[in-house]
Simulated assay, not measured.
Amino acid sequence: MRDVLVFSESFKRWGGGVEYAARLAGAFDAHLTGIWVCASPMAALPSFEEPELFAELLDATLDLEREAFASAAAFEAHVLQFGQRKSSWQVAEGYVPEALALAGSWHDLLVVERSDHATWGSLSSVGNIVLGAGGLPCIVVPEQASVRAPALDTVAIAWNGSTEAMRAAHAALPLLQGARRIVILQGEQRPPSRMTAWLPPFELAGYLLRHGMTAESRAIKGGSEGDVGTAVLGAAGEIGAGLLVMGAYGHTRFREWVLGGVTRHVLAHAALPVLLCH
């Protein structure tokens, strides 16, 4: 892992997600890029029938972006106090998930903070970021101050055999290399259907062993998806995991976000960072 991207909701103050990303990048001697995204004034164009009002909005946006660009030195000084010496600052304009997807195309990992007090930290907004990341692994950090330093000694992997779970486990390999304990939280496997093609089986413990890592397994049971999410978080807490790895959005996006699901439950209630991959 050589390039870490962290999204900041503000360019005037830096949240816990930035601190977590700085410490994580420092642990891997990686370069850290901070990014702030300004909403495009073009999105408000239909609301302004008076050209003069739109011109004022455009001028205000340009002033805001100039101020954001000038925050580069403040960002670099902030992450330096956490030992991160290789950093840079980016400013973009547009829709946040699209800007992060483009910037993420030359990064190995994206870090975002989950907070009900921030526009893009809400549950649905974080979900849109993860969905729009184009397969880039994302670590969602809760806003609690206790998780601002990465703890990768014990890592839990929520496992149900899905493609998303496979991608997440593969993406987490650099973070798993230094773990003393890896616990696979084994959920219910999806049975093959006679109406679909037979897909190749995948055995996670053997995969990790081939990469020089041993893992133990713990069964996770639950009737509803909320129960499974509760069981996953409970097991992760019992083993003292500092990171939970899981695939994101095993159902369609509509069902996952409107009707609930394991991913939504975990994001809403997790007190530890969660690595997601869609």
Rank of each mutant, 00 (worst) to 15 (best):
A171G: 06
Y207E: 08
W120C: 09
A235M: 05
Y95D: 11
E164Y: 03
G83C: 06
A60S: 15
P97N: 08
H278R: 13
I157D: 02
W89G: 08
L185H: 06
L259V: 13
G261K: 09
G226T: 10
P174D: 00
S146H: 08
A44V: 05
R167K: 15
L209C: 00
S40N: 12
A39K: 11
Y207S: 09
A197D: 12
C38V: 07
V111A: 12
H278K: 08
Q81K: 10
L64R: 14
S124K: 08
D108Y: 12
L244F: 08
E19M: 04
L244A: 08
G161E: 06
V91C: 13
Q84H: 01
G94F: 06
E98S: 15
L109T: 11
G26D: 00
T163C: 02
A68I: 05
A68L: 04
S71M: 12
A149D: 01
E113F: 05
A197R: 11
A165I: 10
M213V: 09
D63I: 09
A231S: 15
K86W: 02
L62F: 05
R190C: 08
E19H: 04
S124M: 05
I239V: 15
A270P: 10
E143N: 04
H269T: 14
E164P: 03
A60Y: 04
A72S: 15
F75P: 02
H170K: 12
N160P: 04
G229K: 09
L80G: 12
G94W: 10
L123K: 03
H269C: 06
T230Y: 09
E49V: 12
R255P: 00
C38W: 02
L233M: 13
H107F: 09
I220K: 06
L80Q: 13
I35N: 08
E256D: 10
L62Y: 04
L272W: 01
G226D: 15
D63V: 14
T61V: 10
L209R: 13
V91W: 07
T230N: 12
A172G: 04
G206Q: 14
L209E: 15
A77R: 14
A149C: 05
G261C: 07
P191H: 08
S224P: 00
W106H: 12
E67V: 07
L152Q: 01
A158K: 01
P192H: 04
R13L: 01
A241H: 07
S88H: 04
V18S: 05
S217I: 03
G161F: 08
L57Y: 04
E238Y: 00
P137K: 12
A235R: 00
D29C: 07
L233S: 10
A68Q: 02
F75S: 01
G104Y: 14
L276E: 01
G34L: 06
A172P: 03
V130M: 01
G161D: 05
L110I: 13
S105I: 06
A151V: 04
V232M: 12
Q144Y: 09
F54A: 03
I182M: 09
S124P: 00
T196W: 05
G132K: 10
L272E: 12
G226K: 07
G250Y: 09
T214P: 00
G260I: 12
A236H: 02
L175A: 07
S8I: 02
A39Y: 00
L110K: 07
G229M: 11
K221I: 07
D153I: 03
A21P: 07
E203N: 10
I220W: 11
T263G: 08
A118C: 11
R66D: 13
V141H: 01
A169N: 05
G16A: 06
A169T: 06
D3Q: 15
